[in-house]
């Protein structure tokens, strides 16, 4: 088994309240399914959409991240899967895809090769 991070990008902004609730219910169902199959190592955390970016030797502090709403990471989950292929398969059920968002699947580097 290997560990992966799912990074969720995109925000459910232009939905009606009813659609928002549906979306919420889909997320619960999806996490429940992943969890039942033993794929969730850590369900993760939601992230605020704005914060600060500290950059360079000057330690310049700017408001950030500067990105389109659809590109901002809104949360992450630690997932366990056999390999990248399986992790990708699992990510396909993510409700964020339905609203035009994306899931970035990144293998977590192992300490020994």
């Amino acid at each position: 088994m290997s560990d992966f991070t799912f990074l969720y990008r995109g925000r459910e902004t232009n939905l009606s309240p009813e659609q928002m609730q549906r979306t919420m219910e889909k997320w619960s169902a999806w996490f429940k399914e992943l969890s039942a199959k033993g794929h969730i190592r850590d369900i993760g955390q939601p992230l605020e959409h704005t914060g600060k970016v500290i950059a360079g030797k000057q330690k310049t502090i700017i408001d950030g991240p500067f990105a389109e709403a659809k590109d901002v990471v809104g949360g992450f989950t630690l997932v366990e899967a056999i390999d990248l292929d399986e992790a990708v398969e699992l990510s396909k059920g993510c409700p964020i895809l339905e609203i035009g968002g994306s899931v970035e699947v990144r293998p977590i580097q192992k300490s020994t090769m």
């Binding site: 925000r11 928002m20 997320w27 939601p46």
Partner: peptide
């Protein structure tokens, strides 16, 4: 209101309703 719903969806999906 829209913002409150966005927050709710974002937080509840990770931490439960």
């Amino acid at each position: 209101v829209q913002d409150a719903f966005c927050r709710a969806v974002e937080v509840w999906k990770f931490r439960g309703v």
